[in-house]
Design a protein around this nucleic acid. Structure first.
Lengths: 220, 220
DNA sequence: ACATATTTTTAGACCAGTCTAAATTTTTTT
DNA sequence: AAAAAAATTTAGACTGGTCTAAAAATATGT
């Protein structure tokens, strides 16, 4: 029994919503993320539960089973590898690849994924800094800090983002904030938590809390 | 109104079955090629006709409209470009890529196709020697000859195949018949039309008519 | 703790794409 | 040109995934 495009999407989204702490995911949250109605989500949850891919008790929200987790990570692996391909090989911007990878992630061949991985030289992270699970489903859990949590006077390296919307990513592009850049916190304004930062010791930039809460860094 | 995976498949198959002479394609032929029942094909044909993608009169078979033709060629373009990618970049054999390309061909982004085309340096032919339509839907119509039609003593270059089954392609691999090789016809046996040929002036090989009827060459 | 609001589930319907069985049209054979 | 065979279409049903409207369960506010 094969898993459909739709089932794979649900698993991936449940994984993403349940976060590192494996929280219960609510029907409404899924309805929001899948852009379907709650009633349709309920139907799908019954089906996934019947297949043993999720733990589901009525009104209690869901969690992935071991099996569901494995499958979700395979889809996420494919998604992120394809994003690397699109950016590194085809020259797309990091703000353009999500929707295309959303389609490519459901192409089913194991051999394809492994050869793609080799072709890309086994990347560890996708273009947004998210870690790529390996073929066995192991995903490193980098513990980055939000830029908003770094104190005045400290330096850090930009390692990822929490927001993945094109609008946000394009804003970072225009600000010169790219993965790997060095950021030094010069000032933080108390009233709105906006900050004056210095990038790569070259440019100075004002960032709102909106931005700094969605940028992940590695403290130096 | 988007075209579904299934619709695209029908268009592609109608194109392939109607050949260069744009023959009418029968319901049964489509049922065979799509691995569905004739009754299901009939339903689909009504739908495609309603969308203006095919000319269809009951019991009369179908032909693509201008619009259907354009769409079919876009799908074929994608299919063949992805095959080039799989062979040239990922190192797959020409016998392994059909099924995977069958999935990839339905990924919808125009930008993706054009960037892939550029990345592959605008290939003219896929790994089986089939011509790749350009972005506007123009496809060169190379007029190759079947190897079985070349006379004793003549030379030719191998340019393509008519069969695309893994079994046939693997047989060619084992025989050392690859695209671009030079073939000289040494002898043809009258009773079964099998032939003794010389490849690249290096190896001599016996080929059945089965094989020579499915190998396309350019006479020298 | 009770009434209200929110969330979730059930019930019943729809669409795309498929199926089988039966009816109809076209083609072939004699 | 009639009978038989083959191809095609119609009729009616099923599955996966979705919807709306209504019912049921849970959570919240005072």
């Amino acid at each position: 029994m094969q898993n459909s495009f739709t089932e794979e999407n649900y698993l991936k989204i449940i994984h993403n919503l349940s976060g590192r702490e494996d929280l219960e995911v609510s029907t409404n949250a899924l309805a929001e993320s899948t852009a379907t109605r709650a009633a349709s989500v309920t139907d799908m949850l019954r089906k996934l539960a019947d297949k043993g891919l999720i733990h589901y008790k009525k009104y209690q929200g869901v969690r992935l089973t071991e099996q569901g987790q494995t499958l979700a990570l395979k889809v996420i692996r494919k998604h992120r590898l394809w994003e690397v391909f699109l950016v590194e090989k085809l020259g797309f911007g990091w703000d353009e690849v999500h929707d295309i990878a959303e389609e490519l992630e459901h192409i089913p061949s194991e051999r394809l994924v492994e050869r793609l991985d080799a072709f890309l030289e086994h990347p560890q992270f996708d273009p947004h800094g998210d870690p790529i699970p390996d073929a066995r489903g192991n995903m490193p859990v980098p513990n980055y800090t939000k830029l908003s949590e770094v104190n005045t006077g400290h330096k850090a390296l930009m390692m990822g983002v929490l927001e993945h919307t094109p609008a946000f990513l394009q804003h970072l592009d225009r600000s010169g904030l790219t993965l790997g850049c060095q950021i030094e916190i010069r000032e933080i304004n108390e009233f709105d938590k906006s900050a004056l930062i210095r990038i790569d010791n070259q440019r100075t930039l004002f960032v709102s809390q909106e931005v700094s809460k969605n940028v992940l860094v590695q403290r130096l």
